[in-house]
Structure formats: C-alpha cells, structure tokens
C-alpha cells in the first residue's frame, strides 16, 4: 500500500514536468496550428545546455533553467522567422509543408547536438537526498523540479490570461483573421508564441535532465510524449493538459515500477495511439482533429 501511495505521489510530481513539456507545444499549436516535430529535440538541447553549464561552470540546474529557456527562446524566434514564417501556403498544403519543415529541423537539431555532445547519455546531479514525509520518501530533486515546472507553467498561464500581449496570443489562437482585423500584429504574435513555446521546451529540458539521463537521440521520444499529452488533454485546452500530464505521469511511474523501463516506453506509445483512436478530441476538449 505504501508503495502504491509513493508511486502515486511520484507520478503526480512527474506530471508537473510533463505539463511544462507539453504546454510549450500546446501554445505553439494553438497559435500557429503547426506542430513542431523538433519540440523534443529542443527539450534535449535545453537539457544538454544545462549539462554543459553544470560541467563547465558548476552552475546549479535551477540557475541553468532560465539560461536554457533564454537560449531556446532565441533559437525558436530564429526558426519561426527564418523557416516557418516563409511557408505561406494555406490549408492542408501549408500543414504538410510546415510538418516536413519541422521534421527536417528535428534531424538538424538532434544531429547538431550530436556533434557537440556526442552520443553518450548525460545527466546532471541535483539534490540527491530525499524528503521524508512520515513513512514516505520523495526524491528532493524530483520535488524541486516538479515545483519549478508547476510554477513556470502557472506564470505563463497567468501571463497569457491577464496581460494584453497574452490575450492577443489567445485571440490569434482563436482566429488569426479576427485578431488581425483588431489591429494585432499576427506575425509578431506567432513569433512570440513559437519563441515562448521553444523556451518552455528548453526550460523543461534543464529540469528533466536532472531526473533522467539524456542522449541526443532522445528527442523523438520526448516529442511523442509531449504530443501524447496534448492529444490526451485536447489541443489548446489548459485544464485538460494538466489532467493529461498527471495521468501520463502516473502511467509512466507505475509502468516503470511494475513492468520495467523498456515496457514503460512501449506503454506510453500504446496510450498515445489508443487516445488518438478512442478520443481524438482529447479528455475534456472538443474537436481535436487537425
């Protein structure tokens, strides 16, 4: 029983990290209707940056978190400005072309990281002790990473819902044409959304690498993770995304414990496909089909 409670707590904490991973992709998809297939590679890149900051400068992952986010913010802005904004076709052709573009991007990012960091697994040690709550022990690193991720997601959410800039992102997500006719510079909003989404990926990476080791080829798996989350939560649905993140965290932790890590990875993919097939509109959302 104690094991189950501990696992449940771990799963819920993992949910926070997943939430940060997925919220960035959700933001990008919501505003641009483009799925960034390099999202996972951005997460890995953020993590490896944090690794280098730790290895070279002895920087604490929590301090590396904003730096990784900032670097990825710049990369995201560059990608949006130099690549995605140049794809002007509308409708399904535009979707196909931006899909192919980010598919190519994912290989560029992953293999560029490979040139810098090589193929070995890297990780960053952080708060290796445990927090004891009665009979239950929670790894301190996970607790800190999870709280940081929750805080970051909450801040972004507040920013999106209360500020004018945030609201213009929301407006563009609902109708780009409507937003443009209200005088919103939609191009600027898209740039901001993509950069911010990428920054969230980078920040998430800096936290996740303290929990699981990264390899440059981990990116594809993380993209599917993030995508499972928003498919499960419903695209553009924040409450749904949170619920989905917690569910996925629980699933992963329990599958890891009872089935082993190989099977756990397969379980995530099976959940992903099952979700798509059974409820393509997500848990709470409506019409998640592209």
């Amino acid at each position: 029983m104690l094991t189950v409670i501990t696992l449940a707590l771990l799963g819920l904490l993992w949910g926070g990290v997943y939430l940060l991973m997925a919220t960035g992709l959700n933001l990008i998809y919501g505003v641009m209707k483009v799925v960034n297939l390099a999202h996972g590679d951005f997460i890995v890149l953020g993590g490896l940056l944090a690794f280098s900051l730790f290895a070279e400068a002895g920087l604490n992952p929590l301090a590396a978190f904003p730096i990784a986010a900032l670097v990825l913010f710049g990369i995201g802005a560059g990608v949006q400005f130099g690549l995605l904004e140049r794809i002007t076709a509308a409708g399904s052709e535009g979707e196909l072309r931006s899909l192919l573009a980010t598919f190519g991007l994912s290989y560029v990012v992953a293999n560029a990281s490979f040139l810098v960091w090589g193929s070995q697994f890297q990780s960053v040690p952080f708060l290796e002790g445990a927090v004891q709550a009665g009979p239950i022990a929670i790894p301190a690193g996970l607790l800190a990473a999870s709280l940081a991720a929750f805080a970051a997601t909450l801040l972004i959410h507040l920013w999106l819902t209360t500020t004018i800039t945030g609201k213009s992102l929301h407006a563009t997500a609902q109708s780009a044409l409507g937003a443009a006719s209200c005088g919103i510079d939609v191009r600027r909003v898209r740039l901001l959304a993509f950069a911010l989404g990428s920054a969230m990926a980078g920040g998430a990476g800096a936290l996740v690498i303290t929990l699981i080791p990264f390899q440059t080829s981990t990116g594809g798996e993380l993209t599917v993770h993030a995508f499972t989350l928003i498919a499960l939560g419903g695209l553009g649905n924040y409450a749904g995304a949170w619920l989905a993140a917690e569910l996925l965290g629980l699933t992963e932790v329990f599958a890891q414990f009872y089935l082993g890590s190989n099977a756990a990875a397969a379980v995530i993919y099976i959940v992903f496909i099952a979700v798509l097939v059974v409820r393509p509109q997500g848990l709470l959302g409506q019409a998640g089909r592209v």
Binding site: I87, L100, G104, S106, Y107, V108
Partner: peptide, 8 residues
C-alpha cells in the same frame, strides 16, 4: 534535414 527544410 536542412535539405528537407529547404524543399518545404
């Protein structure tokens, strides 16, 4: 990968 981007 870059070529794929370019073609897209």
């Amino acid at each position: 990968g870059a070529l794929t981007m370019l073609i897209a």
